[in-house]
Design a protein around this nucleic acid. Sequence first.
RNA 1: GGCGGCGUAGCCAAGUGGUAAGGCAGAGGUCUGCAAAACCUCCAUUCAGCGGUUCAAAUCCGCUCGCCGCCUCCA
Length: 499
Amino acid sequence: MSLKVYNTLTRKKEEFVPRDKGKVSMYVCGPTVYNYIHIGNARCYVAFDVIYRYLKYRGYDVVYVRNLTDVDDKIINRANKEGLSTKEIAEKYIEAFHEDTKNIGNESPQIEPRATEHINDMIKTIKCLIENGFAYEIDGDVFFEVQKFDNYGKLSGRTLEEMRAGERVDVDERKRYPMDFALWKSSKPGEPSWDSPWGKGRPGWHIECSVMSSKYLGMGFDIHGGGHDLIFPHHENEIAQAEASAGKAPFVKYWLHNGFVNISDEKMAKSLGNVILVREILKEYEPNVLRMFFLSTHYRSPISYSKGNLDSVAVALERIENTIQRIDYLLYKSEEIAGTSASEIEEFREIIEGVEEKFIDAMDDDFNTASALGVIFDFVKETNLFLEESQKNLSKKNRDLLRPARDKLVKLTGVLGIKLREKEIAGELPDELLDLAKNIVGQEFGEKDAALSALTGAREKAREERDWVKADLIRNKLASIGFALKDTPQGCQITFERK
RNA sequence: GGCGGCGUAGCCAAGUGGUAAGGCAGAGGUCUGCAAAACCUCCAUUCAGCGGUUCAAAUCCGCUCGCCGCCUCCA
């Protein structure tokens, strides 16, 4: 059993063998910070967050690098529009980016290099490319000469002739070949610029990623990821720059690309103006819902955004949380009685022991989170069946299995970055409990726990006496301060959510 | 025009040679003073269509239809 990943470079699933045994180096193309991120961006960051988490779970020591593009035409435009400096724009949207990615439950990469802090490294690489005959300067601009690089097109699977066939843009007449791309751009007055051997200017977009990734991870690092649209020209150009300047290959072992988020069967893109911002979605849905929505489809396939799809995911997520909650409640509340038959105990024990292997099988197959979620839901179903049985016959043996079943669920969802809500009573209870208990039970309580017990006790008593008015009053009052009471065969189940 | 991908139930979706995972919705049931849940069971003889290869095809091959992406900044 081994991890297989789909490599865009070879168009095949390959066994994952890292450069250094036990260690993984990965680089993901981060945002150009000129706006808030949308859920298309978020899908990419969630996909690679899960890959990062899973690699760690599989025992690898992972170094995760994700860049911040903080110099670019779009940032300059935005700065003019908002009346801020480019630096201020970058800072503003870097902060927003960090907020958003944290809010959707992503871990931070270990290293987040910024383009503007690596200008000298880029200049050095560009100089090297000129010396090696892969680049040329014209009037303060430097271009990469694609015809000099034999393998140009190997990632996107097309030849130079094929690329030219569909030319849709006006080509800079000064370039030796239409596909040549900018390594260094001379700056206009008022634009951010740095001194260079070619005069004042700034780096082209592609050079930062090859320079910063190989600086922190070295040549031949393991995983380079990003959105599907970056295959050409961005990643194609990165390969050309890196391999031409280093004089060796490969630049990257495995190229991974995620599919797009579509809206009404059309891709979501800033250029199309149909974007939905992460911060907008999070006003309506909890982060887990967005995350599970992404994970319900394989990361390479396109995914269709709609509220209906998010809603059905939200219900599915509750299914897992309910199971956790039922286990907690049963373990917390119920006395042990009789016992479930030995065969059922044994059967469930085997299910618990086998679930993680199934989960790994799914995830090892190119991070198939959709399949992995299927494994988790199967397990939820089996656990629910065992819970039904345990509610009738809770023995020590049942208890001893419910705890690991719960742990397994939390662990496996955790690998996917889903943090299950703890809805059991926990933390600080509201002060209103004391007043409420005083009014209804007619007694002063020093402890809020005691006040809550008294209230629920009073309600139980009222129910026994068939005093429905009083019982409902207590339930409604408690509901108004955040407690949800559900009557179950085992008694009244209480959950509390702070308002 | 070139290159690549996709089409599985009402919806979302996994499955790339061995006889259709999972979720949502729907139907039935259990529980229940009420309420709100929750849980269980059922739900595709069939994988866009047509042909072919094979003992065996959603999976491989060919053709047809439909949709999408990349070739320009984009995750």
